[in-house]
Design a protein around this nucleic acid. Structure first.
Length: 274
DNA sequence: ACGAGGTCCTGCGAGC
DNA sequence: TGCTCGCAGGACCTCG
């Protein structure tokens, strides 16, 4: 599922097509993707609204509609695409939210597993939502010190902490694995046991990898698509994720895999990460 | 506060 | 071929 680079790619793709557009018609196939908003209020809130801005927060895409903001959390299998022609039957399949735009195009939120979520927030709701999420790793203000402060408080595994959205925004399982490998840090190490040179390396590698992944339009393992429906290509650059049992690209050691941290697959090199 | 584990969903690939 | 099982990029919840 989309992590920061994937959602950033989606937002960059769909933003030009959405800015200034009015939403004319809305349809929703399932209510179970809604949180904190009823079907009626969602449809009423979107219909007739004009898209003022489109941006990303953490792993979520946000449409600023003036009075309210639509937050799309794609979860594991969600995609957000602006179509400029009739949808194929394949594209209609699993389309959860369809919003017809005033220029004839259509914004479609598609989600096979429907673990994704749609929120429609007023200003106080938005403030609560964004206030509960940690710093954006690609912001200029994100420093090794800021990362260190988040890690210092926790004895949990460093991988779990950097994936925890309240400490750091946008890093999910793929990029956590990759950044820890690149920084030479054992994912199971207690966060508070990292030293300042670890903070500097991890900070740099998180940013470097996220930027590189954005440059490749994200990582397509299975479902992820860009805002124009294409696959990303960063899967070709992954050094550890998905390579359990294969030789480490740096030293040739067989990569280890475990589900011991937060029940998510962790792949690492015993020799290069300590 | 923490860690472990379950829940929401569906599809796919492995193994029998 | 056809079945069952385990697993999958996230986020949120409860329990002890």
């Amino acid at each position: 599922m989309p992590e920061l680079p994937e959602v950033e790619t989606i937002v960059r793709d769909i933003r030009p097509a959405l800015l200034g557009r009015r939403i004319d018609r809305v349809s929703l196939s399932h209510d179970d993707v809604l949180r904190g908003v009823s079907r009626r209020r969602l449809v009423q809130g979107l219909k007739g609204a004009t898209v003022r801005e489109v941006f990303r927060r953490a792993k979520h895409a946000v449409l600023d509609l003036g009075e309210r903001r639509l937050v799309v959390q794609p979860g594991m299998t969600g995609s957000l695409i602006v179509h400029d022609r009739r949808l194929t039957s394949d594209e209609r399949r699993y389309a959860v939210l369809r919003a017809a735009l005033d220029d004839g195009r259509e914004l479609v939120y598609r989600d096979v597993r429907r673990l994704g979520t749609l929120l429609l927030l007023d200003t106080p709701g938005w403030n609560r939502y964004t206030g509960a999420i940690g710093p954006e790793p690609l912001d200029a203000g994100f420093t090794p010190r800021q990362l260190a402060a988040a890690l210092a408080r926790s004895r949990q595994a460093v991988k779990k902490v950097i994936m925890d959205q309240k400490y750091l925004a946008g890093v999910g399982n793929i990029y956590a694995n990759e950044a820890l490998f690149a920084a030479g840090i054992d994912p199971s190490k207690p966060a508070a046991s990292l030293r300042s040179d670890d903070h500097v390396r991890l900070h740099a590698e998180i940013r470097r990898i996220l930027l590189a992944a954005i440059g490749s339009n994200g990582t397509t393992v299975r479902d992820y698509r860009t805002g124009t429906g294409e696959q990303g290509s960063f899967q070709l650059e992954l050094l550890v994720y998905g390579r359990e049992g294969a030789p480490c690209r740096r030293c040739g050691t067989r990569l280890a895999g475990t589900h011991a941290i937060d029940g998510r697959i962790t792949v690492f090199c015993h020799r290069c990460q300590s």
